[in-house]
Amino acid sequence: MCNVSNFKQAVGFLISILAFNVSAQPEKSVEEILLRADQYRLDSAAAKVVSEVQLYENDELETTRHYTVYTRPERESLVVFKSKVEAGQKMLMLGDNYWLLMPKSRRPIRITPMQKLLGEASVGDISTLTWSADYQGKWVQSLELKLPMSESVMVNQLELTAKTSGASYQRIELWLEKGSDFPIRATMYLRSGKLAKEAWFTKGERNARTSVVAMTLHDRIQPSKKTVINYQEISPVALEAKYYNPAYLSRNTVSGL
């Protein structure tokens, strides 16, 4: 008799949990949530993104780099390396195809998605990928998330799976502020399943709109390394089609970009 009573209590408890999870699901679709989250990072289809990237080792600033990224629809972007030590370098990404262009070489160098991720501030992180276009999302749960500075916020947790082989990361766990869908935290996993990086997003204002103004990346493969990407300018800019041609880029310095 006691066993029957315990069984009924357990079933009731499970039903209550399931009922809570169903009711906790957001009214919007996951696709709508991701579109809104992306708008805090890029609010136009074609944009110019000016970034300052600070590289830390054991919390000591090692170096600062500068990049200008031009994005347009269909997962196409051009990264122009602006720091003196990298001057003249460019990275072109057209869907799942990637080229590195060096200032003293007349030939574009084809690279793989994994090579795109090399370095503390990988081009995959700088190029501001869009979650709604590059990933298939799934709602996981609502919960209270503790922030690094001891505060807490209610969030929706999503799990994202790459739609294409060229996505920067195979899987992303994403926490978005409940109600606003502002991105709070993300953990990024390689195709091997290994946790590569953990990101925290900084809320601020740009052009009188709430925006992601910085992203802090903690390297989980090399824990002593940290990268802070400050988005100094994001403006609607559409480059001419010729700039998305690797042959054109290899013959021209495009120093004015």
Rank of each mutant, 00 (worst) to 15 (best):
K203L: 04
A247R: 10
A10P: 05
I17H: 14
S235W: 07
G137F: 04
Y189N: 04
A238H: 09
V155S: 00
R41G: 01
E144Q: 10
Y169V: 09
R36S: 13
A238Q: 15
P223R: 09
Y243L: 09
Q136P: 03
Y56T: 12
S77T: 08
Y67E: 02
G95M: 04
R171M: 11
R36T: 13
S180F: 10
A199I: 03
I234C: 01
A47C: 11
N58F: 11
S5V: 12
S165I: 14
I15P: 06
S132P: 09
N3D: 14
Q39I: 04
E151P: 00
E177H: 05
A24I: 01
V123E: 11
T130W: 03
R209T: 12
N245I: 06
L147C: 02
E177D: 06
L100Y: 12
K116S: 12
I229N: 09
M154D: 15
P183R: 06
M91C: 01
E205I: 10
L174G: 00
L129F: 11
Q141D: 05
V4Y: 08
Y98G: 00
L129M: 05
N6W: 13
S168V: 11
Y98A: 02
P113I: 01
L195I: 03
I234Q: 02
N230V: 12
V140N: 05
S235K: 15
D96R: 03
I126L: 08
A47E: 09
L217P: 09
P246C: 03
V213N: 01
Q232G: 07
V49E: 03
K48S: 13
M149N: 12
V11Y: 02
V22C: 11
E52A: 07
R171W: 00
A47T: 14
A121S: 03
N207C: 01
S122F: 07
R171S: 04
D134W: 08
E144F: 02
T68R: 00
Q89F: 08
L249N: 06
A214G: 10
S180H: 07
S224V: 14
R171N: 09
E74H: 10
Y248F: 15
L42N: 06
G95N: 05
W99D: 09
S211K: 14
D181M: 11
T161D: 14
L14W: 15
F81E: 07
L160R: 00
V153H: 06
A133W: 03
V50F: 06
G179R: 07
T216D: 10
A214V: 07
A247Y: 03
Y243A: 04
S255I: 02
G119V: 02
E198Y: 05
I234F: 05
T187K: 12
M188I: 04
S168Q: 08
K225H: 14
K194N: 07
N156P: 00
I172Q: 00
T227I: 13
R72D: 06
E60H: 10
L94Q: 09
D96P: 08
I111T: 04
R106V: 06
P236F: 00
Y67F: 15
E198L: 09
L176Y: 06
L78I: 00
V22D: 11
T64R: 01
E144G: 04
S29N: 10
T253V: 10
L117M: 14
L195C: 01
I221Q: 15
T161M: 13
S165A: 15
D59H: 12
Y56G: 08
M102V: 03
N21A: 12
T63D: 10
P108R: 04
V85S: 10
E144T: 10
R41L: 09
V237F: 01
